[in-house]
């Protein structure tokens, strides 16, 4: 991965400045069934197309924001800091992941 990401605070920056927490998912509201729980924790849609993701500007302003990225081309269509009111459910990455180191 070597694309640029438009941090809503800082502007376009190298993707290596960010960490990605994967696609935005919905955290179950109350005591989920085992099936609901495992699908929330382990299953992702993994689309070949535009996907909404959580990103964190680790080596910059240290703010979480969401991006719409085309997983086929790495084209980032938009980025925005999400207001709590519009936070659809709650996402849940297993752990805060580090983007793969680039080849060069």
């Amino acid at each position: 991965m070597s694309f640029l990401l438009d941090c809503p605070n800082c502007g376009p920056r190298d993707v290596n400045e960010f960490s990605c927490a994967g696609e935005v998912t919905v955290r179950p509201k109350e005591s989920p069934t085992l099936r609901e729980l495992t699908s929330y924790i382990y299953f992702r849609r993994n689309v070949a197309g535009v996907q909404r993701e959580w990103w964190y500007h680790r080596q910059g302003c240290e703010v979480w924001f969401q991006a719409e990225r085309d997983t086929r081309t790495n084209e980032v269509l938009r980025t925005e800091i999400v207001e709590p009111s519009s936070r659809a459910g709650t996402p849940g990455p297993e752990a805060v992941a580090t983007p793969d180191a680039p080849a060069v």
Partner: peptide, 12 residues
């Protein structure tokens, strides 16, 4: 820190 910031962004 990332974990805290993230849940704070989620829960608002």
């Amino acid at each position: 820190l990332e974990w805290f910031e993230w849940w704070n962004a989620v829960w608002g």
